[in-house]
Design a protein around this nucleic acid. Structure first.
Lengths: 360, 360
DNA sequence: GCTGTTTGCGAGATCGTTCTCGCAAACTTG
DNA sequence: CAAGTTTGCGAGAACGATCTCGCAAACAGC
């Protein structure tokens, strides 16, 4: 039963066995020109019998499109962001008949540049890029993309004039601060991820990626609205490695009057708070309050549940694919800057410091 | 500066501008035949100037290999398994000069079959498959793979005679049971993921995927060694959805004499224990003990830390790529069945029920 | 100066498709 | 039955690269 030929059957094999030409075989299988019903039936039967499957490489060569999109992500476990985004993108692409070539950059701009070149060389029809936090973005300019469309996900790069899909972290973070202040917190800590930082620092780095900038601005707006003066806030910028963020948390907690609530810009930072607080026997939601960005099952089911700003990650991935495919299939669309709404989810990790109402 | 041509420059453009033939241009760029130094210099300069990049599709057509491997995974967030495995595979592949075409099956065997067909059609050089828990595996037989190598990851399928990379969940789970019994636990609960289950059941399903079977066998061996009789054990099989596993946990905890420790076969199940116990005000590590398979940052940093059987997921991914690439680049290697060691990590989620030693 | 070898390069095939053309046979129509 | 139209099919080009040949020119040796 198994074909003995060293190579997979091609359309030539089908044509030969059906006693017709390549052209007729192709017509019969694709059903486009004029072919007699008998020929169609015979060719299809033989194709079935010998297990012919068209070589998509050859098809792509002829058609000029591969049905493949390139995905350049930044893998990070604890945020479950890579996970959720990748899955939603892969699934959304498959539903639309596209396959996904995936590369991970780990925030390394050189890897990002190289990955994009490789993907373009492999003739992807378009790209979804989670741009790395560091480095220039020349390699993302239209002229360097061979006319193939690009959608930026998660992080905005304003000068590229390209479609971007991100989340409204500003509003979510602002609401989170409002909520904590409403519960009586007056000394706030803020732990922020930033690249190009060695160790951690309280000085604001020159450039922040858009998502972190939004969170920072949202936090600042919330604090300002609530009337929390700068001297009652501690900001720490840290690179996204445990040693650095843990040191930042430790330093915060060592202050003469430490913050009663710590906001973290992602789950890596939040886990560092969990770890350092845990090692000191400080209970989250009692001695130390915690709010972070990005929801996850463990944040929801831990005791206490972690108060979070939830981002619609699946929707982000899905929309990135939808916009990219739209641009691939009908070029010349106007670039869009889409910001999806976030959701503030209060749980028990922020203590209620207000004086209990009389009668309670 | 930017080329105005509608299409990307090809080797014909390079050849024309250099005043040589395609053949000479190709030789100059790839450096294989005889070409004068002057010609090489001129061709390379022109290729640089016009931004020529070889079309990998055309190259692949001629060469018969694409430098691409297909990855078929099962996305699941809470286990961080998809995450870690995917990242390690993508990174390991890139290091060896391969790109990864990724598909997610969500355990759907039809999707798996279709995905593999599509990947083969796209002429991947080989496949890494995390086989779905259900359905047959005919589509994975050598005859249906067009001679392209396959490595099975995470789950073993014994009748395929193909290289498999998995983890030794048997030993890890057995040690976990030993440990809990050593701490004085005598009534054990076991919550197990299984496909083809509607809701949950205490009856053992007909077929279990190898990883879950290993965990089940390891658990059983540990319990037998420790002399825990069947009547002091509660087994619940559940499909991997929250409603089902939560109901199973609730039922366990509602027993007249509930288990003092619950073993779960993955993190989804563990989170259900966390959720249900939390909603009843039962503290993990005190009123209810918990052990699960797969480590993660949250499991480590939660209070109490969760006792786990840690699996070397990155190593698994890396090894799968290594074996696959070896088979691609020098076919005819003997199939291997590799089981990587797991590590039991005791933390605070298992209560010490032993009578304190006198003097303590 | 004649034969023999090296050097540099181009013509053309090849990978597996799709699709445009043109041609002959089979029909239709008056 | 001649003229026009439809039908079915094959030859060959194209996508963009690589690589095998073979052919000239340049060089070597005697």
């Amino acid at each position: 039963m198994v074909e003995r030929r060293s190579h997979a059957p091609t359309i030539v094999d089908v044509a030969d066995q059906a006693g017709v030409s390549r052209a007729t075989a192709s017509r019969a299988l694709s059903g486009y020109g004029r072919t007699s019903a008998a020929t169609v039936e015979r060719v299809r039967r033989i194709a079935d019998e010998i297990g012919y499957r068209p070589n998509e490489l050859a098809r792509a060569m002829r058609a000029g499109s591969t049905g493949t999109i390139g995905l350049v992500v930044i893998a990070d476990f604890t945020n479950a962001f890579f996970d959720r985004a990748t899955k939603s993108i892969v699934d959304a692409a498959r539903k639309r008949g596209y396959q996904v070539l995936i590369t991970n950059t780990d925030e390394d701009p050189d890897v990002e540049r190289g990955a994009i070149e490789t993907l373009l060389d492999k003739q992807v029809d378009g790209l979804i890029v989670f741009p790395s936090a560091t480095g220039h973005s020349q390699h993302l300019e239209a002229g360097n993309l061979g006319g193939r469309p690009l959608v930026l996900a998660d992080r905005r790069l304003d000068d590229l004039g390209v479609t971007m899909v991100s989340t409204d972290d500003y509003s979510g973070t602002r609401e989170a601060v409002r909520n904590a202040v409403g519960l009586g917190h007056t000394r706030l800590g803020f732990l922020i991820t930033a690249a190009n930082i060695t160790g951690h620092t309280m000085a604001r780095p020159l450039a922040l990626i858009s998502s972190v900038r939004d969170r920072t601005d949202g936090y600042a707006a919330g604090a300002a609205e609530a009337g929390i003066p700068p001297e009652d806030q501690v900001w720490h910028f840290s690179e996204d490695v445990p040693e650095s963020s843990e040191a930042a948390v430790a330093e915060m907690l060592d202050l003469a009057s430490p913050p009663t609530v710590i906001f973290t810009s992602n789950n890596d930072m939040a886990l560092s708070v969990l770890k350092v607080a845990g090692s000191r026997g400080l209970a989250i939601g009692r001695e130390v309050s915690l709010v972070t960005v990005d929801d996850s099952p463990w944040a929801a089911y831990m005791v206490p549940g972690i108060t979070v700003v939830a981002r619609p990650v699946e929707q982000l991935g899905e929309l990135a694919v939808e916009r990219l495919v739209a641009e691939i299939e009908s070029p010349g669309q106007a670039a869009q800057d889409i910001q999806l709404p976030t959701q503030f989810i209060p749980r028990a990790s922020v203590a209620d410091l207000r004086t209990p109402a009389p009668g309670q």
